[in-house]
Write a protein that binds this DNA or RNA. Structure first.
Lengths: 109, 109
DNA sequence: CGTGTAAGGAATTCTGACACG
DNA sequence: CGTGTAAGGAATTCTGACACG
């Protein structure tokens, strides 16, 4: 269970540098946010801040866009992935619950 | 041997955000660069870019400054640390050389 | 749909300098 | 020595809109 290295998820990179890092135009990056493909945070006065995770995701998006995949498809695929992750976690929890129950019963008998 | 996670050393953070992250004023950060305590990179037009490593180092510097340590002392201590690291690496290499020599000899006999 | 661009304003960053101490 | 500040300029970022397609 890796605790977030935090460097990867902390939102600290401005859009200009993200543009350099990804090769995308700032216009494209803003548009992908509008289409809810990425979720930068904002500084007090409204400037976008991105994480390295966002940068990687943008490179992923760029690759898909080059294949002609539309933004709404990219978003749907992404949400499906998230769902799968959720199920995994839930299954994991239920299993853990059963294990705990087993132990609980055998201990209290 | 951990290969640089690169998130930690990549220079992508602007001075304003570093200021928020560290609680230092941009004036202080610029001054510490002037005193050669940190070494940000520059964008094409000259804006400073820092890494998470730099941010951590700045928090370290801030702590020492609060203890009244002067910038030139902080720099000296830092260079001593770097020297020690160097020695370690060299010792390591020499040791490895001896080991290799041992193996070479025994194999060729 | 996805991206470029000009528009106008606000905030950022830069450097060199003066101030205080 | 270490840090604040006002100064002037350049570059960044933001939003909403028009353009093309």
């Amino acid at each position: 269970m890796t605790l977030d290295p935090s460097y990867k998820t902390k939102k600290v990179i401005t859009i200009g540098i993200v543009s350099e890092l990804t090769g995308l135009s700032v216009r494209q990056i803003r548009y992908y946010e509008e289409r809810k493909l990425i979720f930068p945070e904002r500084t007090e006065r409204g400037s976008r801040k991105f994480s390295f995770d966002d940068v990687e995701r943008l490179m992923d998006i760029a690759a898909k866009r080059e294949e002609g995949v539309q933004t709404h498809e990219i978003r749907q695929d992404y949400m499906r992935e998230l769902r799968k992750e959720e199920y995994k976690k839930i299954r994991q929890k239920m299993l853990q619950g059963q294990i705990n129950a087993q132990f609980g019963v055998s201990k209290n008998r």
